[in-house]
Design a protein around this nucleic acid. Structure first.
Lengths: 217, 217
DNA sequence: CAATTTAATGAGTAAGTACTCACTCTTATT
DNA sequence: AATAAGAGTGAGTACTTACTCATTAAATTG
């Protein structure tokens, strides 16, 4: 995966201007090593070496190794829920998303773009979640508070309009999220080297989510 | 999660009889610590302590820490693909699985039972896959060789019979696996404490996979 | 340009780390 | 009961770990 690809975007999330050159090198190297070996398996010595920086410099900017991890992961996690941060989702519905299908398509494209930019950091985040209570807590708060409540509104909206079946809202959300997540994992984690016709697989996925895989008639 | 629950089954996979009492304690403790802190974050000192065994005893039975990890993970991985190991899947189809729906339902129930028994070890396995090439290689071989080829046969079979839509086989497999995986992750990882009406959510999942979430008419 | 703050260094430290080994204890075999 | 073989031990080893601190270099300010 190409470092250059997400580098700029990554520093747009942090406030890059207030960082020294060496600090940027440290973050870049840390992302690399954390993604490769995991937090526990990564040594500050190696991060320093790859950043071409003295080990002490790391601890001038980050008091502990864990603080370094959080400074990488936290801002990306904040952006992870971005598409659900819209103040009043109901104003967006019908206008921008006249159907669940339109919404679905936009969501998939949006999340694909996000992962293309921040894959390394998201990978670190997912790898480390089981071992750090701060991450777990933070994630639960973000997801439940923002994503889940908005997502519920959306599903209920289209259920009221008769476009979605009357299964439990959580079941529909789970199935939608799961199907999109599966596509993203296949695309970026399992077989990233394959030539993906993204437009086609997105359409296939939308179709399967909405109409299932059973033949009609 | 309940240790007692999977303990017996776990030792059925290994050949328990040829192990000493202390060796069993070591394995049990290792599973516990690996699941909690990850491989790199787990120290042999702590494993020994929890197993109530001297640290040297661990290395009497396992030459390295990694050998200990593999001895836990390998046999469970072998069983992971069990439902697809049937010699000739075509003999099973139509007789035991007259429809994809029947097959789906059986698969979900089977995998749920499996996870209920081996959740800790599967968790370790999934946590460590990114960091150990042996695991990655082994998994790829098992999955591609066994699961994928059989699964392809099954999907093609029901496509020929006109029960499944004519999307690419891999797309259908991905969507099926993804939907089941999502259910299992929600059930055992994200909200295991919730009271799950398993029969109901299984039926919901089967329905959504086959018919989607769009209302008819 | 001098003064002061801030960034960067790398040798040093105490607390781990996985693993070894000479030894003892237990169990099975003759 | 004597012998052999394996299981279990825990102090010891060489090495790595995250983190500190006195010192030097660079940048910022009056």
């Amino acid at each position: 995966m190409n470092v250059e690809q997400w580098k700029e975007e990554f520093f747009l999330i942090l406030d890059e201007d207030k960082m020294t050159q060496k600090q940027k090198q440290i973050l870049l190297a840390a992302v690399e090593v954390f993604a490769e070996k995991g937090y526990a398996g990564a040594s500050t010595a190696e991060i320093a070496k790859r950043a071409e920086v003295a080990e002490g410099t790391i601890f001038r900017h980050y008091r502990t190794k864990k603080e370094l991890l959080l400074s990488i992961v936290a801002p990306v996690m904040a952006k992870l829920v971005a598409p659900f941060l819209i103040e009043d989702i109901r104003k967006i519905l019908d206008k921008d998303f006249p159907s669940y299908e339109t919404f679905l398509r936009a969501l998939i494209i949006n999340r694909m773009e996000f992962l293309r930019r921040h894959f390394s950091v998201v990978k670190i985040f997912m790898q480390e979640i089981p071992f750090h209570d701060e991450l777990k807590e933070n994630f639960r708060h973000y997801v439940i508070e923002n994503v889940l409540t908005r997502f519920k509104q959306i599903v209920e909206h289209f259920q009221e309009r008769g476009e979605l079946i009357e299964l439990p809202v959580m079941a529909i959300i789970r199935h939608t999220a799961t199907s999109i997540g599966g596509l993203l994992i296949a695309r970026f984690l399992i077989i990233p080297e394959e030539e993906w016709e993204e437009d086609r697989v997105i359409e296939e996925t939308v179709q399967m989510i909405l109409y299932g895989i059973k033949a009609k008639g």
